[in-house]
Amino acid sequence: MKVLVVHNRYRSEQPSGENNVVDQEVSLLHEAGHEVGLFERRSDDIASMSLVGRVSVPLRVPWNAAVRTELATRLRADRPDVVHIHNTFPLLSPSVVAACTDAGVPAVATLHNYGMVCPPGTLYRDGRVCTSCVGGQPLPAVRHGCYRGSRAATVPMAVSTALNRARWWTGVSRFFCISGAQRELLVSAGMPAESLVVKHNFVEDPPVRRELPGEHVLYLGRMTEEKGVRLLMTAWSRAEMDIPLVLAGTGPLSDEVSDWAAGRRDVHYLGLRTKAECQALLARASAVVVPSVWLEAFGLVVVEAMAAGVPAVAPAHGAFPELIEPEATGLLHAPGDASSLAAALRRIVAPAWNRELGETARVRYEKDFTPSVGLDRLIAGYEAAIG
């Protein structure tokens, strides 16, 4: 099969799970013998643009006519069987969908977030889950400045959402939702149910798995409010655990987390770590904690923990209830509730039960989240779109 992948890469200074997913899928297709081309833009390139170029970027977020022409020309020359669209913000724009229509090439798109119904794609505002724009026009997002706290910065995204909704929904043959929870919300917002299929992200089998009892509870991710970092700090202070908490990652709350950890003997903040270092931390974990207070469309860290034979604690909302089977592969806590999270942390580290949870989590990974399963679902989506 001949596939062209379309993606606007996120800035390298902010490690992106979405970039990683795209790279892994491209490698997976190559290894399976498929021919894969790339049509990319990089947000890193904005910094090197002229002043005029940088100023014009927001104007091209809703529609980039030059990209439409360039991509349509590429498609007519290469004639791929299918185009796989990922992120189009800010340098590509939804004009890539029109280019596929111009060239008569079927398109599929992976929905990595809630951008179809929420301009910043997060469904999160002012410390809480927000669905004000779901099923309607994105005016609340502009009013509240939901993207980077700025009304001006939110306007191009809101305009793009409003103007291109019909084009996305009619011009893309198959949308890959990364969880059933995400699909359910998008269908309720009016997206065509027949075009939305669930294709979970896959995870490569790690080079190391847990063999000995875990040494720590691990938080692995961005240091941000929506990821539940402050909730975790509160819960950990209440939990009074016998093993330490290790946090790895970076973000706006890094200094706050570092200061908090410096005042405790049972907490270690490591900052940003390499992929190999994160895998080693996972293999030595008793449990992974993912305390997100927003509605995660997926939970990649949970699946990475499964692959390493490690159970997870996460909130009972978003995608987590379909990833974690309570009392079997991990535990769910009441969303946003520090006491419920503390209780789950105390329970999950019980030695005999913890080992059993980890073993069951590994079985779940082998059943649903391996590269081979991911490839089968990817190709099935492509074939359906071509058909």
Rank of each mutant, 00 (worst) to 15 (best):
M1G: 07
L4R: 06
E13D: 15
S16Q: 07
N19R: 12
Q24C: 09
L29V: 02
V36L: 02
R41M: 06
D44S: 04
L59N: 07
A66P: 03
V67L: 00
L71Y: 03
R74T: 09
P80I: 02
V96A: 03
V97L: 00
V97M: 00
A99I: 04
G104A: 05
A107G: 01
G115T: 12
Y124W: 15
D126L: 11
D126F: 08
T131A: 12
C133A: 15
G135V: 15
G136L: 15
L139A: 15
P140Y: 15
H144P: 03
G145C: 13
R148A: 07
G149Q: 06
S160H: 14
A162N: 07
N164T: 08
R167L: 10
W168A: 07
S173D: 13
F176Q: 12
G180V: 00
E184P: 07
E184K: 14
V197N: 06
H200C: 10
N201M: 04
F202D: 03
E204F: 00
D205W: 06
R209D: 05
R210V: 08
P213M: 06
G214L: 06
Y219C: 04
M233R: 09
T234C: 08
R238L: 15
M241W: 12
G249D: 02
R264P: 09
L272D: 00
R273W: 03
T274D: 03
L281S: 02
S286P: 04
V288D: 03
A308I: 05
P315W: 00
S340F: 10
R347V: 11
R347P: 10
V349S: 13
V349L: 09
A350L: 08
A350T: 11
E356L: 05
E356K: 09
E359G: 00
D368L: 09
T370R: 07
L378F: 11
A384C: 04
